[in-house]
Amino acid sequence: MEIISNEALSRCIRDAVRAELQEHFKTGGSTGNVSRERLLSKQELAAELGVSLVTLTEWMKKGLPFFRLHKRVYFRMSEVLETMQQKI
């Protein structure tokens, strides 16, 4: 007993994905409170702050906020500056 055919299911999924993508691009990809701030790599942040990668790694161990995406580490400059101001 088949409730819905494979072709009809496939069409429903395609239509739903298409609608979600259209909505995503209409709103510019924003999803509420998610910040659109560019993420900086470890190398970029170290260069921006004028410190070595070793120093940056030590700061991360002491609580510098960062994101890990797979094996890579990223930072939001606003969060880094806010944390540094609080700890001074």
Rank of each mutant, 00 (worst) to 15 (best):
A19T: 07
G28N: 04
R68M: 12
S52W: 01
Q85G: 06
N6Y: 13
T57Y: 15
L9Q: 13
A19G: 09
A19S: 13
G50Q: 07
K87A: 12
G29M: 08
F75K: 04
L81G: 07
A8W: 14
R72P: 04
K26G: 10
L49Q: 05
Q22D: 07
K26F: 07
R72F: 00
L56I: 05
L40N: 03
M1R: 13
S30C: 11
L64S: 06
P65K: 14
C12I: 14
A19E: 09
F67N: 03
K71V: 05
S52R: 11
T27K: 15
F75P: 04
E23G: 15
H24N: 10
H70G: 09
L69E: 07
M84A: 07
C12P: 02
Q86C: 06
R76M: 02
L39H: 02
E44D: 00
K42Q: 04
V80Y: 03
I4S: 14
L64H: 09
Y74T: 06
S41W: 04
S35V: 08
A16C: 09
M1C: 12
A46R: 07
E79S: 11
H70Q: 10
H70D: 12
R14H: 09
R38M: 07
R36Q: 07
A47E: 06
S10R: 15
V51S: 00
R38Y: 06
S52I: 01
S10K: 13
K61V: 05
G63K: 15
Y74L: 09
K62A: 06
Q85N: 10
F66D: 01
V51P: 01
E48A: 00
K62E: 05
L45W: 04
I13P: 02
M77N: 02
E23C: 14
G32V: 09
V34I: 08
R76G: 01
L53T: 03
L49G: 03
T57F: 00
M1F: 00
I4D: 12
T27Y: 00
L69S: 05
E44Y: 01
S78F: 13
K61I: 04
G63H: 13
H24T: 10
E7M: 14
